[in-house]
Amino acid sequence: MKIKLITDSASDLPLEFVKDNDIDFVPLGVNIDGNFILDDLGENFKMDEFYSLIRQGKMPSTSQANVFAFEEIFEKYVKEGYKIIYIGLSSALSGTFNSSVIARNSVLEKYNDADISVIDSKSVSLGEGLLVYKACELINKGLDKEEIVKFIENIKEKVIHSIVVDDLAHLKRGGRISGATATVGSILNIKPTLTLDNEGKVVVKSKIKGKKKAIKYLASEIKDNAIDLENQTIFICHADCLTEAEELKNIILEESTVKDVIINSIGVVIGTHGGPGTLAAVFIGKERI
């Protein structure tokens, strides 16, 4: 039986990769400037337009994917004879994954022979995307569904997110830091570094002064904590700061031997919470904090 790989738009994978590998995705949504936008990985609503609106002072809010959206996509591929693997946004950050669980149970009641696995990535943005990327590789190698699910479940808590946020105001609005901390940090040009813990929650790790030091910090995180670098594809995601992302890529390639480095924009859903200027490196490492 064929395997269908499904994710959601919070995975922030390059649209071309998703299309080339016949991966389907469930879109999350964003409300901004009086408009509701479905996150389509940048196909119709461009990322630079979104970040321009935020820089103009527009405050977006996000909307999780609902149960109906998952029921529709699961039922479609069950009818077509597929086994389904869905890899979703961390359940600690959104109700989207819970929607997928409810939808799976509903579809299984209608189709007793349906084979649907839902995986809580405990990751965000290209951390989630990295797991989808790995699952895609295994499908292309001909592994069966059970082997792929087991591999992803075993590796997901080794996906390391090293994140630097440029503007503390977005973290303040999301309740991650106090207003006083945001004000002082902005004055002193402090860049907080974030990561995800084993529950898939975002935690503040340290603080760095200045973007140049922050970029070097991200490169050092890979060098110090990644495993089997020679066979790894490193993922860099950015919120409208491509120049810094390319600078980070160059440092990684100068300091380490890696299989590949993929850069892509942080989408509108995750970008709502990090804000413009957010830069992150994602890789397989020894362990999360």
Rank of each mutant, 00 (worst) to 15 (best):
E221A: 04
N112M: 12
S90T: 12
L253M: 02
F235W: 00
G271E: 01
I160S: 00
N98M: 15
N31Y: 12
A169D: 13
E254C: 04
I208Y: 07
I3P: 07
L242C: 02
E199C: 09
I163M: 02
N112D: 15
G174S: 11
R288D: 04
V26T: 06
I85K: 03
G57I: 07
S99I: 13
V159A: 01
A239C: 15
E43C: 07
G34T: 11
V78H: 08
T233H: 00
A69F: 01
E246K: 08
K4P: 03
S9W: 03
K76N: 10
D12C: 01
L130F: 00
P192H: 07
E137P: 04
K286C: 10
V67I: 13
N264K: 09
S61A: 12
V132D: 02
K46M: 10
I227F: 02
L218F: 02
I177V: 06
I102E: 13
L93F: 09
I148Y: 00
N112P: 13
L5S: 06
G179Y: 05
V165C: 05
V67C: 04
F45V: 13
H273Q: 06
K110T: 10
F45C: 13
V101R: 07
I152M: 03
L131R: 00
G88V: 08
I160K: 01
F97M: 13
R173D: 12
L15G: 09
R173S: 10
P276C: 12
S125P: 05
I73R: 02
P27Q: 08
L13A: 01
N250Y: 02
N66M: 07
G179I: 07
G185W: 11
L130K: 00
A114E: 08
K110L: 04
M1C: 14
I102W: 05
K83S: 08
G275H: 05
D8Y: 09
K249T: 03
S121V: 14
V67Y: 02
G174T: 14
S91M: 12
F68L: 12
F17H: 05
Q64P: 01
